[in-house]
Amino acid sequence: MNHHVVIRPATEQDISELYELMLQYIVDFYKQPVPKERDLKDLIHYLMENPSSGLQFVAEHQGELVGFATLYFTFSTLKVKKQAILNDLFVIPNARGKKIGQKLFQACLEYIRENDFAFMTWETAKDNKIAQSLYNKMGGKLSEWLYYEIS
C-alpha cells in the first residue's frame, strides 16, 4: 500500500463501508457485542445530519476505506468554548504502520483548531501501548484530570 491516502469527512456514500469498519473496531478490536445494524447505521446517519454533534473522518486508499475517526462535540465551561472528544481512531490491520492513524489524528486536530475549539480529549486502554506511542508523538499529554465512568 502506498502512502496516497485521502482523509476526508464521511459522506452518505461511505455508510456501508464505514459500518463494516466500525463493526471491526467494536467487535474484533474491542471485543464488544455486535451492535444492532440499525443502531450503528443510525449513529452514522445522526452525525452526518447533525454536524453540531460530531463528525467522522474516513481514510480512503484506492477507493476503499481503511480507517476512520469519530469526534463528538460538547462544551468546556472553564474555557467557555466547544471541546471535541476523539472517541474513535481505527485503521484496519493490513493498513497499519503506514501513518494512516497519524493522518486521521492530524485531520481531527486541524478541524478543532480551525473551528476554535478549546481542546480535543481522548482516551485509550492502559495496555494499548501502540496508541499511546502515537498520541505522545502527536504532542498529546496525559490530562491532569482523572477519568471516571458509571453505568
Rank of each mutant, 00 (worst) to 15 (best):
E123H: 08
E149V: 12
N115T: 06
K129D: 15
T74I: 00
S52L: 03
W145Q: 15
Q32K: 13
Q13V: 06
H3Q: 14
G97S: 06
M22Q: 05
V66P: 03
L146E: 15
R8N: 09
L65W: 03
E144N: 15
I26Y: 00
L109Q: 11
Y111W: 10
V80D: 12
L18S: 00
T11L: 13
N128E: 09
T74H: 05
K141Y: 12
L43W: 05
T74P: 00
N128D: 11
L47H: 09
Y111S: 06
G101R: 01
Q32C: 12
N50F: 02
A10Q: 00
P93N: 10
E17I: 08
P51V: 07
L78I: 08
L23E: 02
F57K: 02
G101F: 01
K31Q: 15
K31F: 03
V91T: 13
M48D: 05
E64I: 12
H3S: 15
E144R: 12
E123G: 07
S16R: 12
F73H: 01
L23D: 03
E149K: 15
V91E: 04
V6F: 06
L65H: 03
K82S: 06
V34Y: 05
F105E: 02
G140A: 14
Q32P: 05
V34C: 02
Y135V: 01
L55D: 02
S151E: 15
G139Q: 11
K99P: 04
T121V: 14
I85K: 10
I112T: 14
I92Q: 10
K82N: 07
H61R: 12
V27Q: 09
Y111V: 01
N128L: 09
L43T: 12
T70I: 03
F119Q: 10
F29E: 09
C108E: 13
H61D: 11
I130F: 01
K141I: 15
I150N: 15
S143K: 11
N136E: 14
I150G: 13
T124K: 06
R38G: 03
E110G: 04
F75L: 08
R8V: 07
K31W: 02
H3E: 14
I26A: 04
H4Y: 10
D88Y: 07
G139P: 11
D88T: 10
S151H: 12
D88I: 11
G67I: 05
G101Q: 02
T124I: 08
P9W: 05
P51G: 08
V66E: 12
H45G: 05
Q13R: 13
I92V: 15
L146N: 15
N136L: 14
K41T: 00
Q24P: 03
L21P: 00
V6Y: 08
S76F: 05
I112S: 06
E49L: 06
F119E: 13
K137L: 02
E49R: 12
K98A: 13
G54N: 01
N2R: 12
F105L: 13
G140C: 09
Q106F: 09
G101I: 01
P93S: 10
V91D: 04
Q106P: 02
D14G: 02
L104H: 01
V66C: 14
T70D: 10
R113T: 12
G139M: 09
S143D: 11
H61P: 07
V66H: 06
Y19A: 03
I112M: 07
L78S: 13
